[in-house]
Structures are given as structure tokens and as C-alpha cells.
Amino acid sequence: MPAADFGTIAELRQSLIRKALRYAVFAADANADAVTAPFDEGGILQTLPAGYLPVGYTTTDGVTFSGDLSMSDVESGQSAAPTRSDVETDTQTAAWVPQETNAAAVALYENLPLTGTGALPALGTATWTWSRPKVAPTLYRRLVFIAEDLNKTTGQPLYIVRHFPSALRTAREDEQWTRTAEIARGVTYQAYIDDEVGTDAVTWIDGPGWRAFAPTTP
């Protein structure tokens, strides 16, 4: 076989190192339409279906996507390593800390509907009030996370869109009132398989900056 050039076979490309230069979180009730096509045929980012509300500013920690993977191993007397392993559970969560006191941030933290009966009214139109029920409701949400980056060469935007079509609040952080920091309402939502979409999470990467990586046709 011919000798290999390490720089060639390693295919190290700085242009493929991604950052979320800007990002946003959106939430909708379970009866909203799931996101199926966040980009058009030309890779242009499209508006979300009706019912999705922006969460607004978050802390600099951004959005943390975590996974919990557990395996079921078979051990045998003749082997020090498992002789068979199967995935037992594989779950994904998203955690973030909103800084704004807006309808989406409060509803996600307090487990309130985002629209319809029981939802908070528009800002400034009426008094906001809510009470904790005797039995906490199980409210599934549809969540969308959008990150924007730029193509290093062309300067064009590219986007990473992740959709949890069915997500449930599984944790929330303490709400602290102090004169030295904003009132923040951190939450964690776990993704569950949605019958309509057939998965617990869908991710797309597209945009003019992403299309620029496509090889040219001779």
C-alpha cells in the first residue's frame, strides 16, 4: 500500500468547528403542530408553526443537552469483559435558565399552559396570577432549540435546529430573589417519543453557510 500523508488522511478542518453564536429556545403546547421542515428547499430558515413562544434571554451557560445511557450486560465465566451488551435506556434532556419574566419562561417553570385556558395573558394587559394545584398536572410540551453560527469563509449563517416533539418538565432550579442578580427560573425538560413524529428528538443542520460546504459540480 502507498505511504499515507497524515495531514491528508486526518482531514482536520477548522471550518467545521461549530459554536452557537446566537441561540434561542421556543416552547409550545402539545396540541401545536410539530416541526417537520424548519428549512425550505434552498436551506433558508422558516418561521415556526403557530403557538411557539420564545423563552428569551438565558444565562451565559446556554442550553445543556444531556443524555442518560444505561446498558444491560451479560457476563460469562470465561471472559473478563461482557460477552454481550444491549442498550437498556437512552434518554435526552435539555436544561437552561431563562432570565426574562415572560409568559413562556414562567409557564415552563410553573407548569402552566402556554396558550388557552390557564395561560398567562399578554404582557401589560392584565394581572398575572397563578396558584399551585393540589395535584400537579402532567403537561407535555413541544420544544425547539435554534443555534446560529457563521461560515468562516463566506460569512453566511448556518443553523442547528433541534426539536423535542414531546417533552416533560423533570426538574427546576431554585428561584432566588436578590438585589444583586436577576430572578431566574432554571428548568430541565426530558424528551419523550412522540407518536406523531415517531422519535423523541430531531436535529437539522442547514442554511446558506452550510450549503457552501457542498462540493462544486465540474
Results as ranks from 00 to 15, higher is better:
110 E>Y: 05
140 Y>G: 09
111 N>H: 06
87 V>E: 00
134 K>H: 10
69 L>V: 14
76 S>K: 02
161 V>Y: 12
159 Y>S: 06
103 A>G: 02
99 Q>L: 15
156 Q>Y: 09
92 Q>A: 11
142 R>F: 14
53 L>F: 13
44 I>T: 14
90 D>M: 14
79 S>A: 15
157 P>N: 05
83 T>V: 15
84 R>D: 12
131 S>H: 05
146 I>Q: 01
108 L>E: 04
94 A>C: 11
48 L>Y: 13
108 L>N: 02
116 G>M: 08
158 L>E: 02
107 A>F: 07
80 A>E: 12
78 Q>I: 10
126 A>R: 03
125 T>K: 05
108 L>V: 08
91 T>S: 15
79 S>V: 08
120 L>P: 08
112 L>R: 03
94 A>Q: 09
47 T>R: 13
157 P>M: 03
60 T>G: 12
87 V>L: 00
100 E>K: 09
106 V>L: 15
53 L>I: 07
120 L>D: 03
99 Q>A: 14
56 G>S: 13
42 G>Y: 06
41 E>F: 09
126 A>N: 07
145 F>Y: 15
56 G>W: 13
147 A>Y: 02
102 N>H: 07
66 S>M: 08
110 E>H: 04
138 T>P: 01
159 Y>R: 02
137 P>S: 05
81 A>H: 06
93 T>Y: 07
88 E>H: 11
122 A>K: 10
79 S>I: 03
128 W>D: 02
86 D>V: 14
64 T>R: 14
89 T>D: 03
113 P>I: 05
48 L>R: 05
50 A>M: 04
64 T>A: 14
123 L>G: 08
155 G>P: 04
140 Y>I: 07
57 Y>D: 12
161 V>E: 01
130 W>R: 04
114 L>N: 05
90 D>P: 00
164 F>L: 15
156 Q>S: 05
